[in-house]
Simulated assay, not measured.
Amino acid sequence: MAQITTLPGSGWILLQQGFTEWLQLLNYSPLSIPGMHQALQEFIKYLLAENKTTLAQLEATDATAYIAQLRQATGKRTGRPLSGSHINKHIQVLKLFSKYLRETGKSTVGFALQRVEETRSKPQYLTKTEINALYDAVSNSVLGIRDQAMLAVFYGCGLRLNEGASLELKDIITDRKILHVRKGKHYKERLVPMAEKSYQAIIFYINYARPQLLQAGPTERVFIDANRGRPMQKQSLYIRIKALVKRAKIKKKVGAHSLRHSIATHLLQSGMKLERIQQFLGHSSLDSTQIYTHLKNEQP
């Protein structure tokens, strides 16, 4: 290891690059790898500030102290304490980095980190009347047809923003009317059934509107940007949904994830069992789905 740490921090940079390549080899989502790369970079900055310039100086207590520092920190923009979700993402990356070091024989250091408790607020969702208003706000244009498909994916199928942005043509299993979600949270795959209305909206978009939007050559991604003819990124999808909410004159502060909350709430209100909703949403634990039980008896 000495040959790659001749300059302060240079060894850490190479390890960071190796970690990123390791994640790619393990087929982690390209959408999540940059964030994990950045999280490790923040840890490395902390180590350098502690005058730890080589891997040989790394100790298990460094990770513990770093997380403790994060728990005392505040966000630069908000001025508020960092959320449990934000801290847990750093814990996840540190655990993966420790695994990378051990599996590649670079170090035997292991980080005994426990996830912090996440304070969950009541999820914002739309009533069925508001969902109908959202659909009514869709135009008959090519972009309107794309909007219908977006609503089918994010509301009808309950996909997360990352999952919808990663969706490819091969993921739409037409003979079974199923979406194959390959880029799920924590890199888990799942199969999501499509209701007839959602299925028809997605197929109509793919067969009619999508070919008109393609300008930058063939791509497997489902959603195409109207201006450049390239695959839509998460931010573009989010902005489009927010514009649709505004056009529908819905006053709630909602986005793409609110559509996922909405379908989960509506399924529960219609009598679907919590375990089936858990599978539909791709939750790894039933605890994540339990939050919707607080909304079951509210006005649909």
Rank of each mutant, 00 (worst) to 15 (best):
L94G: 03
F43Q: 10
R230G: 04
V109R: 02
N88V: 11
R228Y: 14
E117Q: 15
A248L: 12
K170M: 08
V192F: 02
K249C: 14
G184D: 05
K106Y: 05
Y199V: 06
S284D: 08
L47R: 07
L7I: 12
L101T: 07
L101R: 06
Y125H: 02
Q114M: 10
L94V: 06
L58Y: 02
A39E: 15
H180A: 02
R228K: 14
I250L: 13
Q200L: 11
G217Q: 09
H257G: 03
E275P: 03
F111W: 05
F223R: 01
R190E: 08
I250P: 04
G110E: 14
A195R: 13
F204H: 13
S288M: 14
K170A: 09
P211H: 10
A165Q: 05
A56K: 15
N162K: 07
M194N: 11
K296T: 12
R176V: 00
A112C: 05
R221P: 02
A137W: 05
F223C: 01
P193M: 08
T53I: 12
L14A: 10
Q92G: 05
Q17F: 10
A152I: 06
L268H: 09
R221F: 10
L179R: 03
R210Y: 06
H37C: 02
A216Y: 08
I33R: 09
H90N: 11
E168T: 13
L281K: 01
K234E: 08
G11N: 07
E130T: 04
P231N: 03
Y125F: 05
